[in-house]
Nucleic acid binder design. Structure first.
Lengths: 193, 193
DNA sequence: TCTGTTTTAGGTCAAATGTCCTAGGATTCG
DNA sequence: CGAATCCTAGGACATTTGACCTAAAACAGA
């Protein structure tokens, strides 16, 4: 992996774990194992690193969504892959929250130009979820509503996890979200399971 | 209002709008209209200001909950007061997210000692909500579950609002949460409205 | 091998930050 | 009025920050 990619990867982790502003060049350099001054050759400014990190996350997210697309048989299965990130990344989410939500929030408070670029990460999930609901038979508008609803719920669980640090809470909420997804099909009619 | 209270009030706003770390002594001094060096007399460290801000928010929250307690006739009404903060504070939430959630998240990332104190703000809402659900006839465990669920949902809506900036989304989610609260009574049985 | 480009290390720079001191003003109370 | 306490202003301080420069090292291709 190139030094540039190493920097982006280290910054990705640190921006998530400590936040964008709280992470300094020195911090990143320390993780990568290069000198501070070397940065200027790869990234002119800190904002450029941020953009690279966002690009990186967008690419990673795209790949993840493609994996889910291939893995899950039904739309509900695929939505289940999304919901279960909360369990898969439970440890980190409990400590640092959702990587997308906390970044958007921080950039919003900083009035940072790249906030809109970070928002695209939300859109990625939202559009993908809406696609799944559409595949279940939902119309366009309903699909988008369901997608945003589920995205908001997962954000909420991530947010509250940071305060509660209660594994059972996450498990229970994931089950509720799975039930919500299963019940979202237009032809669904309380037939039990 | 005393200077100390002025500082706490200004810091309260700035910590919300810009974040704790991104707010400097100079920023607060600018808002209050006092000299920077004057701070040391009222607060020895920045962490002391943070604690004062958290105390302030706890007190404000307590008062707000008491108001709701007096205002709402039924538990569902009172829960409605909580849910509708999202609409009442829509403008600020769209820009800066939830004051509680974003603070807890930032302090978590900074590994800050006062995170647990900030968590108490969540508990305040959570306990109060659980009390309302209990008053509706829910048992202890179910009441806490409903409370956390609703708290998480409101957090999620606040989080996503920062990215979407869509008033309709907030309105729709608030309606869903109101319906959730209304349906939470144990004797509820699809009797329509 | 020689040449030119890319990459790296180390250091400098101004600005900003949290912390802290001191001296002067204001206020209170005997 | 006089003295003691509280409040305030302004600045000093070491440190850290993002940004930037220069020179040496590593590498590439002919």
């Amino acid at each position: 992996m190139s030094t540039r990619e190493n920097i982006a990867a280290a910054a990705d982790d640190l921006f998530y774990e400590r936040g964008f502003e709280a992470t300094s060049f020195a911090d990143i350099a320390g993780v990568v194992g290069i000198s501070r001054g070397n940065f200027y050759h790869h990234f002119k400014t800190k904002d450029e690193i941020l953009d690279a990190v966002i690009d990186r996350r967008i690419a990673k997210t795209r790949k993840m969504l493609e994996t889910w697309e291939a893995k899950g048989q039904t739309p509900v299965d695929r939505i289940g892959c999304f919901v279960r990130i909360l369990i898969r990344n439970r440890a980190k989410i409990t400590l640092y929250g959702c990587p997308v939500g906390t970044l958007v929030s921080e950039l919003g408070k900083l009035n940072h130009v790249s906030q809109s670029r970070a928002n695209a990460l939300f859109s990625l999930f939202s559009d993908w979820l809406a696609m799944q609901f559409r595949a279940m038979g939902c119309d366009e508008v309903t699909g988008v509503q369901h997608a945003r609803h589920l995205l908001a719920r997962s954000q909420g669980v991530a947010s509250l996890s940071q305060a509660l640090r209660d594994d059972d809470f996450i498990d229970a909420e994931v089950d509720l979200m799975l039930a919500y997804a299963a019940a979202a099909a237009p032809d669904y009619s309380e037939k039990g399971d």
